[in-house]
Design a protein around this nucleic acid. Sequence first.
DNA 1: TTTTATTTTTAGATTTGTCTAAAAATAAAT
DNA 2: ATTTATTTTTAGACAAATCTAAAAATAAAA
Lengths: 221, 221
Amino acid sequence: MSPNFSIAEENYIKSIYHLQQASESVSTNALADHLKSKPASITDMLKKLHAKGLLNYNPYKGFRLSREGNKAALIIIRRHRLWEFFLVDQLHFNWEEVHEVAEELEHVRSKKLVDKLDEFLGYPKFDPHGDPIPDSNGKISVQQQLPLSDLPINKQAIITSVQNQSSELLSFLTSRNILIGTKLEVKRKLPFDNSIEIKFKNKQSISISEQVANAIQVNPL
Amino acid sequence: MSPNFSIAEENYIKSIYHLQQASESVSTNALADHLKSKPASITDMLKKLHAKGLLNYNPYKGFRLSREGNKAALIIIRRHRLWEFFLVDQLHFNWEEVHEVAEELEHVRSKKLVDKLDEFLGYPKFDPHGDPIPDSNGKISVQQQLPLSDLPINKQAIITSVQNQSSELLSFLTSRNILIGTKLEVKRKLPFDNSIEIKFKNKQSISISEQVANAIQVNPL
DNA sequence: TTTTATTTTTAGATTTGTCTAAAAATAAAT
DNA sequence: ATTTATTTTTAGACAAATCTAAAAATAAAA
């Protein structure tokens, strides 16, 4: 059913998707920069993607993904973010080093593979950078994620990911039972060092530094 | 250090590796058949691989991989078989359907990814089809693997893989503590139904059918 | 040992994706 | 409102990988 795109096409689709989040319409030059390519090459590919119905394209004016193009982009982004999650969560990569590898893995086309991987990983909602992972229908979770340091006082939240994957931090968090899925709220923010006092559901409270609070991503309930 | 090959080059290297196992020297036509390509295309690529020092190539006479070519082939085969193992062992693919997906995954080049995957999987020695997985130095385990049904009576062996990945079979085996790594020996083969009586290290004995014994791969000690 | 058949290689064309350099369109500046 | 600068597109070339058709080399058969 859904057509197969070349690796080059997939990279264009993905880049356009990201660029059009930030601005109404995407320009040839902006895309050339983003892809480290030359404007002439971009124009060539734009014509191809336009011919395939993936693009709303007005020469000289700019372009965006069509409905079809957006669907294709979400499939690629789903693959990318699931692989990133796998690399950090299962293979214990540092979160800084996963992007490059995921750039390659995202082009493996099998839908069955991606859906089984999703199931294996427990249907994660966010990748290790905190970006939402589209589900198998291309739906992106709208629930927001923010650093624990930005969570308002007394607002309940659930930990969705940890951004700085050093093994010291991880073992520190594990030893304190601060895990993905843990429910907590912020009781106090100390102004002199920005440290934060958090309270768990079981009433236990501990204090963590600003740096740690920055690395913990939470989803307010 | 080790050079990067295109996907096309990798597929040629891999095919030559497999063909040269069966015969002294590989022919252009044989490779064309294997790659579902045309002889003229093969010749073109042979020149390229020869120029890169991956091939011992006498025009019109035949070719084999050079030492370098062999090294490259083993890296690709390692990737392929590790991914196959992952797909069956972790994502519960049926062993018949993994080849196609692994054909794509094998081209993801990151050495770190492959080595971490290997560690994650517990350094498996054989893929789900019973073929040996090269280690990170390209060494292939020479220990053989054969179906439990072919194991001589009273010979100790260790289970290395299970070939027919139906969930019924898997749960049957799990419930009987027949797992990868389990040590056992065959005590009797019943001639009227070819069923097999096996004995574990803890002296416990059970009987399994011919079909099940065929699906279990073992490595004689 | 010629002739015939097969295999392999060369020659030239094609597709995909890229590039440089020049032309055309749009935007900015005087 | 022209001129100038910027952006985008076209034109033509190129590398990688493939193909068809023809030529050359090798192998098999008479």
